[in-house]
Amino acid sequence: MIRMALHVARPVILWAIHFTAIYALISAACAPRALLEPDVARATAALVTLVTGVLMLVWLVIAGRVGGRLNPDEPSRTLAQAAWWTNVIMLIAIVANLWPIAVMGSCTG
């Protein structure tokens, strides 16, 4: 059950890391210090999202398979179900995070 609890926690933690990374990239590109060119920020964001997305897809498949193997009466099954849904929600959420930086040509739109 400890493993299943971690399965619930890991997609949300990964989303938090991804969100922080995207926010940091936009801040680095668009604040007065201008640490990064917007194109560099965009490419880095795409790479980070690709890695995050693949990882989350793998977890999604794992959560589905683990949930499918468990007996319907087993307490861990509820957590497996929660893990699968959390993965789905967070997968959509990382795409939402990437969207602005992917489609905008510059910091001012």
Binding site: A16, Y23, W85, T86, A93, M104, C107
Partner: peptide, 30 residues
């Protein structure tokens, strides 16, 4: 799953109270 997700996602919204403060448009979109 919903309550855990909301707990995390709710931390990514703070700047929607600051849309008119002159933040970069890319930030606003995020």
């Amino acid at each position: 799953a919903a309550v855990v997700s909301m707990g995390f996602l709710s931390f990514g919204l703070w700047a929607h109270h600051m849309f008119t403060t002159g933040l970069p448009v890319m930030s606003l979109s995020l």
